[in-house]
Design a protein around this nucleic acid. Structure first.
Lengths: 268, 268
DNA sequence: CAGCATCGGTTTGATAAATGAACCGTTGGT
DNA sequence: ACCAACGGTTCATTTATCAAACCGATGCTG
């Protein structure tokens, strides 16, 4: 593995729940030698992606990330463009809406929006990565990946995050075919027990699936009627996002989605 | 030079005016071999810091920077805290206010605010780095660096960006002593001919100078009376930012700044 | 449409780098 | 006062990185 990749993996160790990390912890978490880790994190510091706190102990993300993010959003306002759609989606469905993006061979959150309709909601702050096999977003994206990448992902360890997680590659392949037919994905408690999530794929200008749009609903509220509302809202929102991003929707999905709401038989 | 540093330097090649870059250009700009550059940028892509556009040619900053920036700002809201102060400063002085931060051994912009008072203003969007010898911010920060780092910076090439840029290390050292006495820095046309800038240093919790707060005024508007207004406003705003950030102002500066406005004899 | 320059990307032996174990001086808790 | 764990450093060994030549594809020009 390249040194650069190792260094950049250090960045992923920081999270909402662990915003600052000491050198030894960093090395342990990354599975690196302490000396190696020190040099890597020093390099990150020099570039400003990481900074050492005044105390001289812990490290945390540095100011350079702000400049980069501002630059990115000024040039490619994906997040800015998608946020209003997400907010509308959350409002329409009364549940949490979120959007994820392929980064390398992982699915990661880009933005989310909450609904004010209920006091209880699914929070998204702590999610760093969406497991392909255990989330509706992951299944939606996986369905539309090139076969090579799809198999590579299915060959990875597929941990059972809940008793309801699908972990058998054979079952999953069947599920993906089903999702391809229906035009949307669903996961009942695969990621967290009480969460029922729905997702539709997103596509870039070349028709490659690069992300997913999803609703994470409390399982108790996901009645068949509500599921229909959610699917319709998702399809509309996905069209909006794909258009805003200049993406191109595959003809098959365009057809399925146009027969809005009606096509999907109620899933078991 | 470490591989990681080289990879991260690639990130700095992206700017508002050059938001996407092809492989060959990237290699040329970075002074790297194309093969080397390719592997580095591929690694950056895998981490999502950079992404390749759908066209398959140019690269641009990737979605990962957004996640990192959101994380950083959630944990250490430096920018968020400083922005209102900057806006007030711009409003008080009628000129552009900006705040810069030490990143490695470079001074880089963190945030800025414009005034609505005049149709003509100094814009900050395209500034990626503040040369220490040619900007008020740079001089202010340089004055309060440890001697070793100060000399290292003065030993670098000091290009004359305008006919008014100070480029002689001896002259600059004298200027720094002067700035230390006065408690603020000034640069008349050192960076761009028609810009007259004023700056005061900022300090972290351990009393280290980590940045500067600055006003960039149109030279024609920088009358002695206006300069006094600006210095007073800067000192007040710097106190506010240092307090918000939990920093500690060196006693000497505290004294000078307390005798607000009066101490500085009008500069020539 | 043919020629040519340049693009993104890949291969090669020569070389500069990353690596990890042991080792400092300090700090903080018991 | 002790001891464990911290951040940081050193150095011989190993490994990934470098530069130059090379590919097929693309796009521009005469």
């Amino acid at each position: 593995m390249s040194t650069v990749v190792k260094a950049l993996q250090l960045l992923d160790l920081f999270s909402r729940s662990r915003p600052q990390i000491g050198l030894s912890d960093l090395a342990r978490l990354a599975g690196l030698n302490k000396a190696t880790c020190f040099r890597l994190v020093s390099d990150l510091c020099a570039a400003g992606l990481v900074e050492q706190m005044a105390s001289g102990r812990d490290y945390r993300l540095g100011p350079a990330v702000l400049r980069l993010a501002a630059l990115r959003e000024a040039h490619v306002p994906l997040r800015e463009a998608a946020l209003p759609v997400l907010q509308a989606l959350a409002a329409q469905t009364g549940e949490t809406a979120h959007l994820s993006l392929m980064v390398g061979a992982e699915l990661r959150p880009l933005a989310h929006a909450y609904s004010a309709a209920h006091a209880s909601k699914i929070t998204m702050e702590d999610v760093q990565i969406f497991p392909f096999h255990a989330t509706a977003s992951g299944l939606a994206v996986l369905t539309h990946q090139p076969p090579a990448l799809r198999e590579q992902i299915l060959a990875r360890p597929l941990p059972a995050l809940t008793p309801y997680t699908l972990t058998d590659p054979v079952t999953l392949r069947a599920r993906l075919r089903e999702i391809e037919t229906l035009g949307f994905a669903e996961s009942q408690g695969g990621f967290e027990t009480d969460v029922h999530s729905f997702a539709v794929p997103l596509f870039d200008a070349l028709g490659r699936c690069t992300g997913a749009l999803s609703i994470a609903a409390l399982a108790a509220r996901a009645t068949p009627a509500q599921a229909l509302v959610i699917r319709r809202a998702l399809v509309g929102a996905a069209r909006a996002v794909i258009t805003l991003w200049g993406g191109s929707l595959p003809a098959r999905l365009d057809t399925i989605w146009t027969a809005d709401g009606s096509p999907a038989k109620e899933p078991s």
